[in-house]
Simulated assay, not measured.
Amino acid sequence: MSVIAIVSQKGGSGKTTLALHLAASSTQGKLPACIIDTDPQATAAAWGDWRGDFLPIVVTSPPARLGKTIERARKQDDVEIVVIDTPPHAEAAMREAIKAADLVLIPSRPRAFDLHALEGVADMLQHSGKPAFVVLNAVPSGATRQIAEATEAAKQLGLEVCPVTFGERADFHKSSAKGEVAAEIDSGGKAAKEAKKLWKWVKKQLG
């Protein structure tokens, strides 16, 4: 079983969108997945309620119980991929998620304030030894220069950048509000293709 932690100190960075689409892509690819929602706002859990009985599984857990929750997922439901969705401005939750993870993803919009928030996460990751990548999210169309500048800003902090980006796509927002993912409302759309491409890349990182 592999564990992916989605962490960011900035609210609105797209952590939950990333978590939902990775877990759904995993499940659609015949690798049963579980989303562990450690955010008190429980956005991922609400999505799971709207989704009903359709996979992936969504469970909630306080950060202090994260290890036990992962172990329970390991023993039940044949789960092969765990995706941890963390709250912003919560170092304890992020540290626990990083400690449990095989791969850490840090979503960030390619904007100055968002990129500045990477500094705190970079500090946390410095001695973790965990592979970690910034995933640029909500990227405007044709923003080649913004991507280049964001990539350089991340590198200055010692962070690598995922080669796959998520654009500012309506399908990400519309699908989440219905308990779905982008591929379920338009399988040929740009959002669905980006999610599929990201999952393919993540699988390669997990080996």
Rank of each mutant, 00 (worst) to 15 (best):
V7L: 01
S8Y: 10
K10L: 13
K10I: 12
K10F: 15
G12K: 15
G12F: 14
G12V: 01
G12Q: 09
G12L: 13
S13K: 01
G14Y: 04
G14K: 01
G14Q: 09
G14V: 02
T16G: 10
T17H: 07
T17F: 11
T17Q: 12
A19N: 03
A19I: 09
A19E: 00
L20N: 00
L20I: 15
L20D: 03
L22I: 14
A24E: 12
A24R: 08
A24L: 06
S25D: 03
S25N: 08
S26R: 05
S26E: 05
T27C: 03
T27K: 03
T27H: 11
Q28F: 15
Q28K: 13
G29V: 08
G29F: 12
K30D: 13
K30M: 06
L31G: 07
P32S: 05
P32V: 04
A33D: 08
A33Y: 13
A33L: 13
C34K: 05
I36R: 01
I36V: 13
I36S: 02
I36P: 06
D37E: 07
D37A: 00
T38S: 10
T38C: 11
D39H: 09
D39L: 02
P40V: 12
Q41A: 15
A42Y: 02
A42G: 05
A44L: 06
A44W: 01
A45I: 07
A46R: 10
W47N: 00
W47I: 02
W47P: 03
G48H: 01
D49I: 15
D49N: 09
R51E: 11
R51M: 05
R51L: 07
G52S: 11
G52F: 09
G52T: 12
G52P: 08
D53S: 14
L55G: 12
P56E: 03
P56A: 08
P56H: 02
I57T: 11
I57S: 01
I57D: 02
V58Q: 04
V58R: 00
V59W: 00
T60Y: 01
T60S: 05
T60L: 04
S61K: 03
P62T: 03
P63R: 04
P63T: 04
A64D: 14
A64P: 04
R65E: 14
L66N: 03
T69C: 00
I70C: 00
E71D: 11
R72Y: 09
R72A: 09
R72Q: 13
R72L: 14
A73H: 05
A73Y: 12
R74D: 12
R74Q: 11
Q76H: 05
D77Q: 13
D78L: 10
V79T: 15
V79W: 12
V79K: 10
V79N: 09
E80G: 09
E80H: 06
I81S: 00
I81M: 06
V83M: 11
V83I: 15
V83E: 08
I84M: 13
D85K: 02
D85L: 04
D85M: 00
D85S: 00
T86C: 11
T86K: 07
P87F: 09
P87H: 00
P87I: 12
P88E: 07
H89M: 14
A90N: 15
E91G: 10
E91Y: 05
E91C: 12
